[in-house]
Amino acid sequence: MATVSMAPAPGMHQIDLSKLNLHQLAQLKQQLDQELNVFQDSLQTLKIAQGKFVESGESVEKITPQTKGKTVLVPLTGSMYVPGTIIDTDNVIIDIGTGYYAQKDIEGGKDYFKRKVQFVTEQMEKIQQLGIEKSKAREAICMMMEMKLQQQAQAQKASSS
């Protein structure tokens, strides 16, 4: 679970795109493309995590005092189940990370997953924001490259005619 910092990376500063040559622009574009790819991957991972938390939250909702004593099938492996009975409908044990599990009551469990979903959603929003900014920078670079190419073509035409 990575926290996304909004602070600009060290070494990030404003540069005048028109002062760069084509090669530098291409390099910069490649770098931005790479960063955008990383963002895409992170978003994908966060989406999966978000889905898991939502699913777990929904499962907690299903445990009510009425479920007490009901039989369930407990998966021992992916393909083998044994029958079991729900005895405790007041508490759940939740994986809170790094191998630690905490017992919480139903309300606490619901709250936990709600918070986690919110946290992940916030991170996703941050990444999306960053992605939009990077895309804008990339667009500007593309436009500048095109301009430079046109200038070059024109200069060539002028010198050959």
Binding site: I93, D95, I96, G97, T98, G99, Y100, Y101, A102, Q103, K104, Y112
Partner: peptide, 17 residues
């Protein structure tokens, strides 16, 4: 995890895998 542990009540049960 630290934040989560801080939120727990004093008599909450904690397990380690």
């Amino acid at each position: 995890v630290k934040e989560e542990l801080a939120l727990l009540k004093k008599d909450s049960e904690v397990y380690k895998l």
